[in-house]
Design a binder for these strands. Structure first.
Lengths: 342, 342
DNA sequence: TAAAGTATCCAAAACGATTTGGACTTACTG
DNA sequence: CAGTAAGTCCAAATCGTTTTGGATACTTTA
């Protein structure tokens, strides 16, 4: 069934060693012999057994990605773009990606132990850092290569390689943008409190208000679940309890899209009666109605760079142990405009 | 560093065999001995080397998924929902998912050979079947377990296990829906011709027209790339060359969303001046403006069932070799309405 | 009391590759 | 012509498990 080195050896009359070395391109094999062996191998459709290679070489040529499966739809576009970037880079470097989804908590840690402790992957990419993240503690203790999409929360040490967007500055930028349009009452829809970057975004909001000389009001805050529905409900609540708001900042695009739905549902003209801005610049942002003002985060590129960093670490390149903070880019579209009183 | 059976053996004084059998729960190990071994193993943080287990047991406990990476964003929600379903089921059955992205063509086939021929996965899930799909030919020849999301094209044999939605009937349903609202000029935005299901959707359209007593007009057809931009451009073209159209059927939701953008951009009121319907019922459909009339396809559930089928096949359960065709569910929302002349 | 059974344990052989450390020829060098 | 170098090849060890086929000692049975 499966062709092994042994079969080629038997057929050609050479030893397994020679077959292996011929295929691997070592110089101590006669050119004719190698040609003969290569031809036979090809004829038999030989494909090395990856598992055996991995065992012998002690490398899996795979990186692990454990997806928090609580998100109803994995946060759709964000994850799929990140994954796309990761897998593109991994493919180029001949790495596979081992994915497994698990609920945060004990099940998730079991998955990490199986993949990491079980030597099934050479490194891991972590996404959606949480506060006091047990995964990071585990990987750090294991001294297993890993890179993270997103720093640790503000008051925690980020002593690991990561790529993150300066969301603090980005939110400041959004506040400034809205302030410059004339907005004075700006609400904020935050990610869940246990998400690591929530702190940065809240700080950015407060700094932005301060810079604009606007007061901070805790009633203008709402937490959402990062999905459309979370944004929808948060906006519903804010708009009914704080009708003086003329603008909403949602901490990601999906929640912004949900907020737009809520606003339209209440008969508000988004971009005029109410401005709504997001964060991510998902493909959906450009095609929403109205198109969404947001901060662009190069998710695909981040995925690629994360994979490249991780593979560098796996290969022992210590210079890959870096911490990168990217600046987001403000993308102004029609969902934000000067406030109008009807 | 890494704890092996040998280490536990040395520490406890028992043989590797006994350690292995104790951990595996065999009856020929004394209860006290087992307790002692288990405790020591736990103390050392023993985690079996998955690679070695795989080699010895000749199973990888992993299923493969090769993503066509041509799609700019992997078709975002669709893939991420499918993946979510697959990984949820796989996780429950203790299978991992090996993902690798590759451009359709030679690179893709290399990836298949590496994963399948290299014994790195026990089975493969195929998505986005294409006409005359070389991947299917390869897997069939290898007699490697695989399941497919989507049948082969209409004129090709579908002699493999799959799950598909009866998109022919679904498109008929959409045509009937639009016809019942009063539409007589209905355009169609199709997937690329090499996609296997394109044929079914076109047939459904033609049958729907026939059932409604409407003539078929080839000028009412446009091909898109399954992404928002494809729908946008296809709609642009149709609306400018065939201004008599009062309704557009897009063969997936993303293209429908793109088409809505195009229509709104031309100042049309979607659901009144122009009705637009889609296919999939992605999360985005519910939150679009106007909300999208579409046919629901249980993507997450399909992912789960595909994974369950595949794992059944891997375990040798021949009853898992089935072909399932699901009926879509018409979801009427505001993007379709009676045609109005302005 | 011999035979048969039971309870525990283990050495060695897999799984399929890579790599080490030579062996054996033949050709070159001083 | 002895000694060294170069060119080919290969047996065996190794990676970390699981499993086979006993071995050994102690109990029970006839």
């Amino acid at each position: 069934m499966q062709v092994r080195l042994k079969d080629i050896a038997k057929l050609t009359g050479y030893s397994i060693t020679t077959i292996s070395r011929a295929l691997a391109g070592y110089a101590d094999v006669n050119a004719e012999t190698r040609a003969f062996i290569l031809q036979t191998a090809h004829q038999l459709g030989y494909q090395p057994n990856g598992i055996a290679q991995q065992l012998r070489q002690q490398i899996a040529n795979a990186i692990g990605l454990i997806i928090p499966s609580d998100a109803h739809d994995l946060n759709g576009d964000f994850f799929s773009q990140l994954l796309h970037g990761i897998s593109a880079e991994a493919a180029e470097q001949h790495f596979d990606i081992l994915i497994c989804s698990a609920l945060p908590g004990e099940e998730e840690m079991r998955a990490y132990r199986r993949l990491v402790g079980g030597n099934r992957v050479d490194g891991v990419i972590l996404a959606r850092t949480r506060r006091d993240d047990p995964r990071i503690a585990y990987l750090r203790a294991k001294k297993h290569p890993f890179v993270v999409s997103g720093r640790a929360a503000p008051n925690e040490p980020s002593d690991f390689p990561y790529i993150d967007v300066d969301s603090q500055a980005a939110i400041r930028m959004l506040v400034a943008h809205l302030h410059s349009l004339g907005h004075r009452q700006i609400g904020l829809i935050l990610p869940p409190p246990d998400v690591a970057y929530t702190g940065y975004r809240l700080m950015g909001y407060q700094e932005g208000l301060a810079a604009a000389g606007l007061p901070f009001c805790a009633d203008y805050l709402q937490y959402g679940d990062l999905a459309r529905s979370g944004g929808f409900h948060a906006a519903q609540h804010l708009l009914s309890t704080q009708p003086q708001l003329t603008a909403l900042i949602a901490c990601n695009d999906l929640m912004a899209l949900g907020a737009i739905s809520a606003a339209l549902g209440r008969g508000l003209r988004v971009g005029a009666d109410l401005s709504i801005v997001g964060f991510d610049d998902l493909p959906a942002a450009e095609y929403s109605h109205p198109p969404l003002t947001t901060v662009r985060q190069p998710i695909y590129g981040i995925g690629r760079r994360l994979a490249a960093m991780l593979i560098g670490l796996i290969r022992g390149d210590q210079s890959a142990h870096t911490q990168i903070i990217l600046q987001g880019e403000l993308i102004v579209r029609a969902s934000s405009g000067a406030p109008q009183t009807r």
